[in-house]
Amino acid sequence: MNGYERSILAAQGYLELGMFQAVWHELQDLPGEYLARPDALEILTLSLMGQLRWEDALRVAQRLCQEAPEEPGGFIHEAYCSMNWETRWGRSMCCSRGRLLCGPRRCISTISGAITPGWGIVTRL
């Protein structure tokens, strides 16, 4: 494990403790190839979500979807951020729901039964 991988691991620990500023501190000096890794992008997304920075988190989640299109996590985070951002601005949530359905088949099976006609993602995800 090199120093960059240790920084990602430390950021994950800070995330679990809810220390969002420390997450940013650990990730800010990573070179691009490490910051573009799906694990680093997911940690950053979750940290921004924890800070209720929905628009920023949405952008990072979209990047996560590009970097790891086979993983459902990015699509779920993107839909959740989109839903919160759209709700904040009083916009329709149909884009959020549609984004989940654009994810990999595993995404749909991961959330089986979680999408209701009135839109609601069950917290058991």
Rank of each mutant, 00 (worst) to 15 (best):
C65W: 06
R124G: 08
S112N: 12
E42G: 02
P72D: 12
G113Q: 10
L41F: 12
A61G: 05
C107F: 05
A68G: 04
A114T: 06
M93W: 03
S96R: 00
I121E: 11
G113I: 07
L58A: 12
E67L: 07
R97C: 03
G118P: 00
S47P: 10
A114D: 03
G74W: 03
M93I: 13
I43E: 03
G103H: 02
C81F: 07
L35P: 00
E70S: 15
G113W: 05
V60H: 06
R37F: 01
C65F: 11
I115P: 02
T123F: 06
H77F: 06
Y80S: 06
G90Y: 00
T45F: 05
A68V: 02
L46P: 01
P38F: 11
L41R: 10
R37A: 14
Q62C: 09
Y34L: 09
V122I: 08
L41T: 10
H77K: 07
A79C: 13
M93H: 02
R88Y: 10
T110M: 14
M93K: 13
Q62I: 07
P104M: 07
T110R: 15
T87D: 15
R63F: 01
G113M: 06
Q62T: 10
L58R: 14
C94V: 14
L100C: 08
E42C: 02
C81I: 05
L52A: 13
P38M: 11
Y34M: 14
A36Q: 14
S92M: 03
G120H: 11
G50P: 02
T123I: 03
Q66F: 03
R53Q: 15
D39G: 02
T45W: 02
T123C: 08
V60E: 04
I43H: 05
A68E: 12
S92Y: 03
C94A: 07
R106Y: 01
Q62L: 13
Y80A: 11
I111A: 05
L35R: 13
I43P: 01
A79I: 10
A114C: 12
A40F: 07
I111F: 11
L48S: 05
L64D: 05
R88D: 12
Q62V: 04
T116A: 11
N84M: 15
G50I: 01
E78V: 02
G74V: 04
W119T: 03
L100D: 04
I76G: 04
G74L: 06
L41P: 10
P72T: 08
A79K: 08
S92G: 13
S82D: 04
L58Y: 06
D56K: 09
R97A: 02
W119I: 11
C102G: 01
R53W: 11
G50R: 01
S96G: 03
L41N: 09
E86D: 15
A40L: 10
S96Q: 00
A79T: 13
E70V: 06
I121F: 12
C95N: 08
R91Y: 15
L58S: 09
T123G: 15
T87M: 13
I111G: 04
L44P: 00
L64Y: 03
W89A: 05
E86C: 13
R106A: 15
P104K: 06
M49C: 05
A40R: 09
A57Q: 07
G74S: 07
S82A: 12
I111E: 01
R88I: 02
A40V: 08
L41W: 09
E71G: 01
T87Q: 14
C95E: 12
T123M: 09
E86F: 14
T123V: 04
